[in-house]
């Protein structure tokens, strides 16, 4: 069992139709075991009352669902326009040249994270990080430390709502 049936039941009660459970349960499965297993797909299919093949098909549509376990340190670097203009490609190349990349940690590229004011932005596991530079990201993928947490990130953006220059 990947999912907790009691929790599934509770989630089902929130939606008018059961098939809406597909995405929330895929997230739940991924939170629990790190990825979406075949077993999870069968459980979700049963809970949401859709064929398992359809759940599989849905998984392949969304880039954030994984079918295998990721490494412990996972950095996703935005390479969309604002971040590219800030040097994202070089950063990714630098990180990928480091020993251990692909095994102990992974460096993936992603599209705009809606944090372009913090270019180069990234997701370290589930936390938004940025602005990233090579030194900071190196620390991050080695031991997951050294970058402002997401809570700070949010207020950074907020401070700028006023005028950005700290007036």
């Amino acid at each position: 069992m990947v999912l907790d049936p009691a929790e599934t039941k509770e989630m089902a009660a929130r939606y008018p139709e059961r098939r809406s459970l597909v995405l929330p349960l895929l997230w739940r499965a991924q939170e629990r075991i790190g990825y979406v297993s075949d077993e999870a797909i069968d459980e979700i299919a049963a809970a949401a009352d859709v064929p398992a093949s359809e759940v599989s098909s849905v998984v392949t549509f969304y880039t954030m669902f994984r079918r295998s376990k990721p490494p412990a340190h996972r950095l996703q670097v935005c390479t969309s326009l604002s971040c590219a203009m800030a040097g994202a490609d070089d950063l990714v190349a630098g990180l990928r040249a480091m020993p251990g990349c692909g095994e102990r940690f992974s460096v993936e590229t992603v599209e705009c994270l809606a944090a372009c004011d913090r270019a180069i932005a990234g997701l370290y596991n589930e936390g938004l990080v940025g602005p990233l530079d090579l030194a900071g990201s190196t620390k991050l993928v080695r031991d997951g430390a050294g970058v402002a947490g997401p809570a700070k990130a949010a207020s950074d953006a907020a401070a700028r709502a006023e005028g950005g220059d700290g007036r």
Binding site: R19, S20, L23, F61, Y62, T63, E111
Partner: peptide, 23 residues
């Protein structure tokens, strides 16, 4: 309801499909 990495789900009818558990 959380999406999972698909810009197109910002298009309103794709968004509805996504809420319905579809691609």
């Amino acid at each position: 309801h959380r999406g999972a990495g698909a810009y197109i789900c910002g298009e309103e009818s794709a968004l509805l499909e996504s809420i319905e558990g579809k691609r």
